[in-house]
Amino acid sequence: MSAPGAEALPAALQFEHVDAAYGRFRALFDVSFTVPSGSVTALLGPNGAGKSTVARVATGLVPSTAGRILVSGRDVTHQPAWKITRLGVAHAPEGRPVFASLDVEDNLRLTFLSQLSRKEAADALERAYARFPRLAERRSQLAGTLSGGEQRMLALARVLVVPPRLLVVDELTLGLAPRMVDEVYRALRDIRDAGTSLLVVEQQIPRALELAEFVLVLRKGRLVQARPASELSAGLAEEILSVPAAPVDGSS
């Protein structure tokens, strides 16, 4: 539905007429889009539009109630989350997705060891610490006692260090200090260059548009826009999201 897929590679992620619901509450209505292989797609929209639901459905955390979901051309519609993960899909959910009662190192080891050999996992651990020195300092601390931003770093380290085929990041920079936001975006660029496709849910629209090639806009559970990012300036994006264009300044 979105970008014209002229390439030979199958799309990294494809939604075909997907509905989803939480019990009695319906959250997605007939959502169709494509994340082309090797590209970065930003998913924008106001809170409550269903962005996180798209991310959760893509990685199997929430089941779809209708439609088809394809990852690299394979139908994964009713697959459990762990099988989708094994296809090379990584998901950094919103909030603080860490094992609070495990220490930082065990948090990372759990992910790395399930995908890599012991030696590779040890390498990955070193790279994670190199990328996030803060985590190295706290490696034997329980993740639950980290600050909110540090927990966010830990969640990102889990998915950024070993480049997956498709990375889904939800509320990427939530609660991160400006310096960390820069570093996270640098890391995203690196893994994009390494060949990873990305689906990025982000509140900071200008930031998202710097990186993204395609933009999806959700509102009230429906997809209302799908177009190349080049056609969408930050101003236009905010307009689509029905937001006053002027940022809050000191005088207001």
């Binding site: 990685t59 199997g60 955390l61 459990p80 989350a81 762990w82 993960t85 094994r86 990584a90 998901h91 959910p93 997705p97 860490v98 094992f99 609070a100 009662s101 495990l102 759990l110 992910t111 399930s114 995908q115 889990r158």
Partner: peptide, 10 residues
């Protein structure tokens, strides 16, 4: 702690 997080680890 979280079965879903375990799933996300593959």
């Amino acid at each position: 702690e979280s079965p879903r997080m375990v799933q996300l680890a593959g």
